Simulated assay, not measured.
Amino acid sequence: MEPLEVLSRVSRLARHLDRARRLAFSEHQLEPWEFDVLTSLRRAGAPYQLSPGQLLTQTLVTSGTMTNRIDRLAKKGLVERLPDPSDRRGVLVRLTPEGRDRADQALAGLLEQERAILAQLSRTQRGELAALLRQLTAPFDNIPG
């Protein structure tokens, strides 16, 4: 029964985290997948742009799904497509100022939600838990999807 003692709690926590994420994103009119794409561009640093292929790698979706997502985000004014100066046939996807603001605000809301979840643990306990979870998830992070 030992695995259930741990993994059932991890599963329950995942459901609470999913709810917290959805709440944080919905307050900024974002879906979780939109946040993932926007924050991938944000992490790229100025000028906050990546090729669609780079976005595929970071978000782990198919090219058709990514095309659809870029179209929808562009329609909302959160990203824009630009010609790739290094490849005449290529495009770059760039975060617009509105997309950057929305991603930053949603991230702040998410961090607030997650801090509340972790508030009952001390800084030392949070560090220990992060190290244990890193150790537990490491084998999955190295498996090609």
Rank of each mutant, 00 (worst) to 15 (best):
residue 96 T to P: 13
residue 47 P to K: 04
residue 90 G to P: 13
residue 92 L to E: 13
residue 144 P to C: 04
residue 20 A to Q: 02
residue 54 Q to Y: 09
residue 64 G to E: 15
residue 136 L to Y: 08
residue 64 G to A: 06
residue 130 A to T: 15
residue 94 R to W: 09
residue 78 L to F: 05
residue 132 L to C: 10
residue 74 A to F: 09
residue 110 L to W: 12
residue 37 V to E: 12
residue 107 L to W: 15
residue 76 K to Y: 08
residue 18 D to V: 05
residue 60 L to G: 04
residue 59 T to V: 03
residue 59 T to D: 03
residue 71 D to A: 00
residue 55 L to R: 02
residue 25 F to G: 08
residue 33 W to D: 08
residue 118 L to M: 01
residue 84 D to M: 02
residue 70 I to Q: 14
residue 83 P to L: 00
residue 76 K to C: 04
residue 17 L to F: 01
residue 80 E to Y: 04
residue 26 S to I: 06
residue 44 A to Y: 13
residue 22 R to L: 05
residue 29 Q to K: 03
residue 145 G to K: 05
residue 128 E to G: 02
residue 49 Q to N: 09
residue 26 S to W: 02
residue 112 E to G: 10
residue 142 N to S: 10
residue 107 L to M: 10
residue 13 L to F: 15
residue 109 G to Y: 06
residue 48 Y to K: 05
residue 145 G to L: 12
residue 140 F to R: 13
residue 137 T to Y: 10
residue 77 G to A: 14
residue 35 F to E: 07
residue 94 R to S: 11
residue 40 S to E: 08
residue 109 G to F: 02
residue 88 R to A: 04
residue 55 L to N: 06
residue 86 S to H: 10
residue 99 G to H: 13
residue 62 T to N: 01
residue 135 Q to V: 02
residue 121 L to P: 10
residue 50 L to C: 02
residue 53 G to Y: 10
residue 75 K to D: 06
residue 95 L to V: 12
residue 138 A to K: 12
residue 20 A to K: 04
residue 45 G to A: 02
residue 35 F to P: 06
residue 88 R to S: 11
residue 108 A to H: 07
residue 24 A to C: 14
residue 79 V to G: 01
residue 52 P to C: 01
residue 101 D to V: 10
residue 79 V to S: 01
